[in-house]
């Protein structure tokens, strides 16, 4: 492969990488937040709300991410929702990820031992205090590994954003190869890059997981 190519296309590739990382981080963070709200609403909310949210989860999990993006990006203007590619991509990631995150939190909430909560009640704590001081910290400890896991899966989904013209890494590489005709090499290099990227993140995730328990337990009770 040509060094000049990289010099010439370096800036747009870097731009693409930054967009990929931006979409991923904002998308994952937003998805975690939305998923958390959904899970808590499903746990404490009234029955009708629970049914609505269950429906939302099933619909989002049962349809392809690409179609969700098309509805948002191309269908949105029909109902007056006009978004630039990057915000549309980020919003798409948030919506796509939210039901998976919600299910992680929901499982975590259900896994908090009843006795821990009863101990709080027996000690005359209010339900709010119990949620804040006992339920949530225990929930976080058990949820961090699956949260990291799913967030890693989400890095790969960012490649799909190229189809709705989000100028992320894959999109930029395609632009570049359209001009240089080096499709195969470019795609192969990109595959290797993603591979390395995901492996590094997974490795970091596992490291983090090992430290999380001790860290969270100290941090959250401080």
């Amino acid at each position: 492969m040509d060094i000049d190519l990289f010099v010439q296309y370096g800036p747009i590739l870097l731009c693409g990488l930054l967009n990929t990382v931006l979409c991923w981080i904002v998308g994952a963070a937003g998805g975690v937040a939305l998923g958390f709200v959904i899970a808590v609403a499903m746990y404490y909310g009234p029955r009708p709300l629970r049914y609505v949210l269950r429906g939302y989860i099933e619909v989002i999990r049962g349809t392809p991410f690409l179609i969700q993006l098309f509805i948002l990006y191309y269908g949105g203007p029909n109902i007056g929702l006009r978004l630039d590619p990057v915000p549309a991509g980020i919003l798409g990631l948030i919506i796509y990820g939210s039901p998976y995150y919600a299910e992680i939190f929901r499982a975590g909430l259900q896994a908090v031992p009843r006795g821990m909560i009863e101990a709080g009640r027996a000690m005359a704590m209010s339900e709010g205090t119990i949620l804040r001081r006992i339920t949530l910290p225990i929930l976080m400890v058990s949820s961090v590994p699956p949260l990291t896991n799913f967030s890693i899966i989400l890095t790969k989904e960012t490649a799909i954003l190229s189809i709705v013209t989000v100028p992320e890494l894959l999109y930029q590489v395609q632009t570049m190869s359209a001009e240089t005709f080096a499709y195969m090499e470019a795609m192969f290099a990109l595959a290797l890059f993603y591979w390395g990227f995901v492996e590094v993140i997974s490795w970091a995730g596992r490291k983090l997981e090992l430290k999380t328990n001790a860290f969270l337990s100290k941090e959250l009770s401080a």
């Binding site: 101990a119 000690m123 225990i138 009770s221």
Partner: peptide, 25 residues
């Protein structure tokens, strides 16, 4: 109250477990 399964809060040290309700309640 003291429970069969102890029901200590796993994310707090022994001292924090004891101090928690003293502060919160």
């Amino acid at each position: 109250m003291v429970f069969q399964q102890f029901n200590l809060w796993p994310h707090m040290t022994a001292q924090q477990n004891v101090a928690e309700a003293l502060v919160q309640v």
